[in-house]
Design a protein around this nucleic acid. Structure first.
Lengths: 237, 237
DNA sequence: ACCTGAACACCGTTCAAGT
DNA sequence: ACCTGAACACCGTTCAAGT
């Protein structure tokens, strides 16, 4: 009868369970504290037991990305290509914001998994259905880059929150050496209603950039249809 | 007299020498084999000696980025803002291509060094001098993101070279599950003269994307000047 | 055949002992 | 006061020994 009490969580390990536990651990404790050893401990298992379901840590990370990409909504039907693409990418962004570690892990990936390829395939299909040529779609995919999955490579991380007073002091301080940066930082503090009083409205910036791109693509698509062939945005050389 | 022979390279360590050695080591052996211990060995020094010139590995990486950013040409004078920005960013790209590890290290950085802030400050100055408002410049900086330093966050790494025959086989193989991706990959193989017969012309793709963005910014700048205030790219909501 | 403990070959960094 | 060897607290993964 002691047996019943002793081994209660004999849920057998599976790839799915390993991946879900890894995602949960990264969500809670941060990606930097996700190690094979800690994950094993979390699952009440010896480290080497993980290697039965995942060949190494790289593949574990690949699998975790697959979980996140799996959360992206399928394309909506019955609208123009631009609206459909826009909505899908914003859905991807929502998935990514739920897992703050995901964008950094995606950046570190060296090759795409089948799940990621599926996503890319269906995004390409949306552009092609919208009437973009193969070549234009190709360039569009390169141009949109990581935004396709709902994030942007920002040059610096301004996500750390500082209280408004402190922020004003920092901006004034900065203004001595970097007047132009300070000007922007200061303007960002007062701008829209949605800005909480500090830093940038990331969602606004993301959508702004996305719309610059989509509008540019639409313009190129129209050029293509009238001129009959694809051409560079402008002759800039 | 043995002394003269024994200690020939008594060049004293300095922050500059440490950073330059680190850059050289990363260039030669790859960023993944840059460790404090190996760098110390390279300099003929005990690991702990490095910590006199660099407080930890993070700061070493920051310093390495500063070396790369220091290689970017200053802005050219006497042209319109778009040409000047374009040329500067292409110079940044050249610096980055000389140090293939740099873009990944930049991605991993959490805050900007003074050298990087200097660069950003002078880029903002270029947009402002071109007549973009503070707010528009702000959004432009977010939109351009990592391209400001000459690279793009690509979703997958197609840099590994495969011989053309192998490539054709891979594309056909892929075509079964991912017809749209294969279509693009196949088109890319035959496209321009500059394409070496496989994969994408990264330089073309970079400039294409850059021009989509710069043209979009110029359009918004003109809108601003006629309407008197800044507005979203289009009313897309 | 499966599972797993110990060990290997590394890390970045602390710290106390040596000069 | 400076320098540095050894040690600490981790890694991911191999491998051989145990069941």
């Amino acid at each position: 009868m002691a047996q019943q009490i002793e081994a209660p969580r004999r849920v057998p390990l599976s790839r799915g369970r390993v991946l879900r536990a890894a995602v949960a651990l990264a969500d809670d404790a941060g990606i930097e504290s996700l190690s094979m050893r800690k994950l094993a401990e979390e699952l009440g298992v010896v480290p080497m037991a993980l290697y039965k379901h995942v060949t190494n840590k790289e593949e574990l990370l690949d699998g975790m990305i697959d979980v996140v990409v799996g959360e992206i909504d399928p394309p909506v039907r019955g609208t123009d290509w631009k609206t459909a693409v826009r909505q899908r990418i914003l859905s991807a962004r929502r998935a990514l914001l739920r897992h703050p570690w995901a964008s950094r892990v995606i950046e570190s990936r060296t090759s795409a998994t089948p799940v990621v390829l599926d996503y890319m395939e269906s995004m390409i299909e949306m552009f092609r259905a919208g009437g973009l040529s193969i070549n234009l779609t190709h360039h569009v995919m390169h141009t949109i880059g990581s935004r396709l999955l709902g994030f942007t490579q920002e040059l610096f991380d301004d996500s750390q929150s500082v209280d408004p007073e402190m922020r004003v002091v920092m901006i004034r301080e900065m203004g001595r050496k970097y007047p132009y940066i300070a000007e922007i930082a200061s303007a960002a503090s007062h701008e829209g209603d949605s800005v909480v009083g500090q830093g940038c409205d990331d969602q606004f910036e993301f959508e702004f950039a996305l719309d610059v791109l989509l509008d540019g693509f639409e313009r190129l698509r129209r050029q293509e249809r009238t001129s009959g062939h694809h051409q560079r945005p402008q002759e800039n050389r």
